[in-house]
Design a protein around this nucleic acid. Structure first.
Lengths: 348, 348
DNA sequence: CTGAAAGCGCTAACAC
DNA sequence: GTGTTAGCGCTTTCAG
C-alpha cells in the first residue's frame, strides 16, 4: 500500500501512474495521449495535468508491441563520409520526421557482411520499412527484408533481379553524357575509374562510358580502366598510377565526385594542370565541387529530390497505399565547369 | 486446432512457434537465442534448426520491454550535410555497432524546437543513451534526458551549465592559434565569421580570436564580425558583403571549414586572389579541404578519435561503469596549407 | 537442465 | 464517455 503512494521510485512512470493521479482508467489516458476526440475536455485537462506533473512519456516499445507498428525506418548506406549520402540522408530524415517516423542509421562501410548483419538487426527491431542505398548486385537484403514483411525501397543501387520499388538516377546515360562530352572535346584516351565492385551504379556508368566510346569507334583499353572503390584513398592511389603511365590518358571520367577529386589531387601533386594536361569529369555533383577553386565538371542528378521521392514511396508502401512495386528513374545532365576544358554551362 | 498447424499466417513467427516446432519450452528457446550455456547441445541444435526453418527473428521490442534496455542510442546533430558530422557519425556508428547498439539519427537542422521534439521522441523510444552534438548554450536537452533516466554525452557543443559528460576539442585555443598565425603574418584587419548563434563552439572560437587580437593590442572592429550560421549559403552571402567593403579585411578566420570555403568562393567570384588579396583560415579540417586545389589552412582536431571516445564513454555510462560525469578536451593544432599565405606545414 | 506462470506498458475489444 | 479484460512476445522468477 505504502509503495502505492510513492509516485516514482526510479522506475519510469507508466500509464497507470498517470491514470491513478488523474483518477481515470488507463484507457482514458491512452485516449488523451493519442488525441482521440472521445474524451471530455475536463477529463482531458486533468489527464494532461497529471502527465505534466509526472513527466510521463508513453513507451513507444509497449505501443509498438500491440499496434505492430514501430514508426521506424531503417536507412542502409555504404559510407556516410561520402558527401553524396548526407545530401540524401537529410531528405529522408526530414520527410520521415514529418510523418512521425524515426530513422535508424546503418552504415555498412561497403562491407556486404555488415549489410547482411544490419538487415537482421532491422528485422529484430521490427522496423516498418527500409531504404537500401548500399547494395551490390548480388545482395539478398531486399528479399530477406521483404520476406520478413518489411517494406523495402532501393535507392539508386539495386540487385540483379528485384521486385521491390526502386528510385534512382539514369546512371547509364550519365556515363554516356560525360564521356561523349570529353570525346567531343577531342579526347581519345579517356580513362574510367570504377566505383565499388558489384555496385550497379558503377556498372551502369561504365556501360554509358562504353556506349559513348563505341559511337566513336573506340575500343576501351583495359589499361585505362581503374578501380577507385568510391573511396578517396583507394582512388588517390589508382589515380596516381593512371597519371604516371608513359602514355597517360588525356581525360579521366570518375564514377563519382569523391574519386574525381582524388584524381585532381593526384594530378596537382604530379604537377599536371587540370584541364590542360588532364581533363576530369565526375558524377553526383556534390555541393563542394561547385566551389570556384574546384569547378568540377560532373553529372548532376537531384539526390535531394530523389531521397524525398524515395521516402514518400516507402511511407506509402508502409501505409498500404502502394500495392505494386514502383520503378522511377530520374534524368541526369552534365554540368560543365572548369575541369573538363569545355565551355562552362550557366554560371560556370 | 487447425490454425495451430499452420506455422505462419502472415503474422511474424514468435518464440512459441519455435518452441512448438522444436518440442521445447519458450524458455529454452530464449536460452538458446541468448547464448546461455545451460542448454544441452542436442536440444540447442534442435532449437537452432527450428529457428532457421521458421526464419525466426526475436523481437527486440518484446525483449526491450522486459529487460528495460533497448540497445539503442540516439545521435542528435545540427546538420548532417556539414562534412564535419559524417566524419563523426562514422565513428559513433561503428563503435555502437560493435557493442551491439543501433543508432537513431536525429538531424535538427539547427532548429532548437526540433531538437526538443527529438529529445521527447528519444525518451519515448526508451533509448539507453544519447550523444548530443547540436545544442546551443541555452538548451535543456541534456537535463530533460537525464531526468528521464537516459545517459547523455555532450559532443563538442555544450549548454551553459552542464553536469553530464562532455568531450570536445579546445575551441578557444583553436581560435587563438588561427588568429595568432594571421597576426604573425602581418595581418591587422582580420575578420571573424561566426557560426550558429548560441553554439558554444562558435562562441569559444571567437573568444580565442579576441584573445589573440588583444595580445597585439587590437580592438576587434564590429564591422569585421560576420554571421555565417555554419551554413554555406548564409556564409556565402556574408562573405560577399565582407569582401565588398571599401576597407575590406586582409584576412578572414571562419569558425568552420564550410564557411571558409564559402569565403574562398566569394573571393574568387570577386576576382580576389587567395591568399594574396585575402587570406583564409578555417576550423575542423574536414577531409576535402586538404585537396591541393583548395589547400585550406585550418584548425585540426581529431573528430574521428573524439567520436570514438564519446561513444566509449556513453556506453560505459550505460553499463553503469561511469558514475561521475567526465570532461575531456582534446588539443587542436593549426594546419598551414595554401590559403593563409604562410609557410606550409609538412606535406603542405 | 527444462517447464509454467507472471508481468513489462500499452491498446483493442467489449462492457457499462 | 469511461472502465475492465485480455493479450502483444519476450524474460524472469520459481518449480520440477
Amino acid at each position: 500500500m505504502s509503495s502505492e503512494d510513492i509516485p516514482n521510485r526510479g522506475r519510469p512512470v507508466t500509464i497507470k501512474d498517470v491514470a491513478r493521479l488523474a483518477n481515470v482508467s488507463p484507457k482514458t489516458v491512452s485516449n488523451v495521449v493519442n488525441n482521440r476526440p472521445v474524451v471530455k475536455p475536463a477529463t482531458r485537462e486533468r489527464v494532461l495535468q497529471a502527465i505534466r506533473e509526472l513527466n510521463y512519456h508513453p513507451s513507444a516499445l509497449a505501443r509498438g508491441m500491440v499496434t505492430r507498428s514501430r514508426r521506424l525506418i531503417g536507412l542502409v548506406l555504404a559510407d556516410i563520409t561520402n558527401p553524396a549520402y548526407p545530401e540524401m540522408v537529410e531528405g529522408v530524415a526530414s520527410l520521415a520526421r514529418q510523418a512521425g517516423f524515426m530513422v535508424m542509421l546503418c552504415n555498412t562501410g561497403r562491407d556486404p557482411d555488415e549489410e547482411e548483419r544490419y538487415v537482421h538487426l532491422l528485422i529484430e527491431q521490427r522496423v516498418d520499412g527500409v531504404i537500401i542505398a548500399s547494395s551490390r548486385m548480388d545482395s539478398k537484403a531486399a528479399e530477406v527484408l521483404t520476406s520478413a514483411g518489411i517494406k523495402v525501397l532501393l535507392f539508386n543501387r539495386h540487385p540483379e533481379r528485384y521486385s521491390v520499388s526502386f528510385v534512382g538516377v539514369d546512371n547509364e546515360n550519365g556515363g554516356y553524357l560525360a564521356t561523349k562530352h570529353l570525346l567531343n572535346l577531342g579526347h581519345r584516351r579517356i580513362a574510367f575509374m570504377r566505383g565499388t565492385r558489384g555496385a550497379s551504379t558503377s556498372i551502369e556508368r561504365e556501360q554509358g562510358y562504353r556506349r559513348a566510346l563505341a559511337e566513336f569507334g573506340i575500343e576501351p583499353s583495359p589499361e585505362l580502366i581503374a578501380w577507385g572503390d568510391y573511396h578517396p584513398d583507394v582512388a588517390r592511389t589508382a589515380a596516381d598510377l593512371l597519371l604516371r603511365m608513359r602514355n597517360r590518358p588525356t581525360a579521366v571520367f570518375a564514377a563519382n565526385d569523391v574519386m574525381a577529386l582524388s584524381v585532381i589531387d593526384a594530378a596537382a601533386a604530379l604537377g599536371l594542370r587540370v584541364p590542360e594536361d588532364v581533363a576530369v569529369v565526375g558524377f553526383d555533383d556534390i555541393a563542394i565541387v561547385a566551389n570556384r577553386l574546384i569547378g568540377l565538371s560532373t553529372i548532376h542528378g537531384d539526390l535531394g529530390q530523389l531521397s524525398r521521392e524515395a521516402t514518400t514511396l516507402l511511407l506509402e508502401a508502409i501505409n498500404g497505399n502502394l500495392t505494386e512495386p514502383v520503378r522511377k528513374v530520374l534524368p541526369v545532365y552534365l554540368v560543365v565547369r572548369r575541369t573538363c576544358g569545355g565551355k562552362p554551362t550557366g554560371d560556370w
